[in-house]
Amino acid sequence: MAEKKRTILRTDKLKAFYILEMQGTQKIIKAVNDVDMEIYENEIYGIAGESGCGKTTLLKALFNDIVPPLRLVSGKIYYCINWDKEVDVTTLSPEEKRQLRMEYISYIPQGSMSVLNPVLKLKETYKDFIGSHLSGQSQEEIFELARKQIRVLGLPKNILDVYPHQLSGGMRQRVTIALASLLKPRIMIGDEPTTALDVVVQRGVIQMLKMIQENLKNTIILVTHDMGVHANIADRIGIMYAGKIVEEGSTEQIFGQPLHPYTQFLINSLPKFGDKNMRSSVPGNPPSMADLPAGCPFHPRCPHVKEICRQEMPDFCYPDENHRVACWLVGEGKHG
């Protein structure tokens, strides 16, 4: 981390809530609650946290896909589309947003059965996804582009001529990754792309992601609740709890000196080599994001909880370069 990295995506006090109207009453789910983050070019940024903590919602927001019932309550999302100038993408028109997708920022879904149109051969899907962006290109040119990439990535040659249901889960996942990288976007966002796969296939998919990132030198933002995957692939990791980033650092910092009690739980729940004991998962349940506890949202589950934790949300402090933690245990003069 010697040279200063250039920022490619930045959020500023981002709040994105689900606002549900039910029989006259309003329910507000604070799924992304005051998130400041800065993602650099040429890095793999991992976002970790238990299921339901808001990872998918944060990705939707970063992808600038905020549609009801999700609302942008406050804050901004900036893309560095041209290096010299940041663009607040929340103000773009729908057509401008559409054009950025695939070309500037692309989305890798969880490649489960149903993300590819079941009635279209893959080449038709390619035609739709690529043809929507390279309007000057003929059908043959699009297929040629696709075939070239398929060769490079080592996918089966006939893959364009099959239907999605004829592929294994791992192959479908590879196809979605190939598609996401085809137009060489500056940012690729993946939501649990390895989660539904068995370990061997998972490793292949991780290799593929790494290879693409090394070739394109772009940014991958990867969400998974699996800390093992993060250890394998991420350069930096943000730990999310109840809609907030509670700790962020390089992969070495997060695994070497986890400071937030929640991060420590996540890492301790990983199986270790030669350890036959069942690993403990985080005790208790995550809070409801419609009814968050006051102060630090982790306090009902935290073994180190102090009086102030129940009253006030801690600010970030920076124990090390690029390492930030929001916990009352950490920080000047506030130690317990």
Partner: peptide, 29 residues
Amino acid sequence: AESFVQYAKLGGVTENRIVGRYVIRNALL
């Protein structure tokens, strides 16, 4: 609401393609 329609939207596929080839085509079955 199917994920292949959502995914096509996230891929920036143009709206007339989504309506015709993703939504109506499948709904006709």
